[in-house]
Amino acid sequence: MSVIYVLLTISIVVAIIFFTAFIISVRSGQYDDSYTPSVRMLFDDELVKDDTALKKEDKNKSNQLNKSQKL
C-alpha cells in the first residue's frame, strides 16, 4: 500500500515539473509562429460575399426545399 503513495507522489512531482516547463516555454515564445505571417500575403484572399447575396442565396435554397417537399 505504501508503494501506491510513493508512486502517486512521484507522478505528481513529474507532472508539476512538466507543467512548469510548459509555462516557461510558452512565456519565452517557444510556440510563436514567425513563419506564417511572412507567407500569408502570397496566398490569394478568399472572396467574401456581401450580406445581400447571402440572403438571396438562402432564400433560393429555401424555395427549392419548399418545392421539393410539395412534390
Rank of each mutant, 00 (worst) to 15 (best):
V48D: 12
Y5D: 15
K70Q: 09
T36F: 08
A53Y: 03
I12D: 02
A15K: 05
S25R: 08
S11M: 07
R40P: 00
I24L: 13
A15F: 05
S28M: 12
N63T: 09
T20L: 01
L65T: 11
T52V: 09
A15I: 06
K49M: 11
D32K: 03
E57N: 00
K59A: 15
D45Q: 14
A53C: 13
V3L: 11
G29Q: 01
L7V: 14
T9H: 07
Y5L: 15
E57Y: 02
A15C: 06
S62R: 04
T52P: 00
K61A: 05
S68T: 13
D58F: 09
I17L: 05
E57W: 01
D45L: 11
D51G: 11
S68F: 09
M41I: 15
L65D: 08
S38G: 04
E57V: 01
L8R: 09
R40L: 02
K61L: 07
K59H: 08
K67I: 10
S2M: 14
I17T: 04
I10L: 14
K59R: 08
F43W: 03
F43H: 02
K70F: 09
V3W: 03
N60C: 13
T36G: 07
S62L: 13
E46R: 09
F22V: 15
Y31I: 00
V26R: 12
S62G: 04
K49E: 13
S28R: 10
D45M: 13
L42S: 06
I24V: 14
K70N: 12
I12G: 00
L8M: 15
N60K: 12
Y5G: 14
F18T: 10
I24A: 15
F22I: 14
S28I: 15
Q64M: 12
L7E: 14
S68R: 10
D58E: 07
F22Q: 05
L54C: 01
R27A: 14
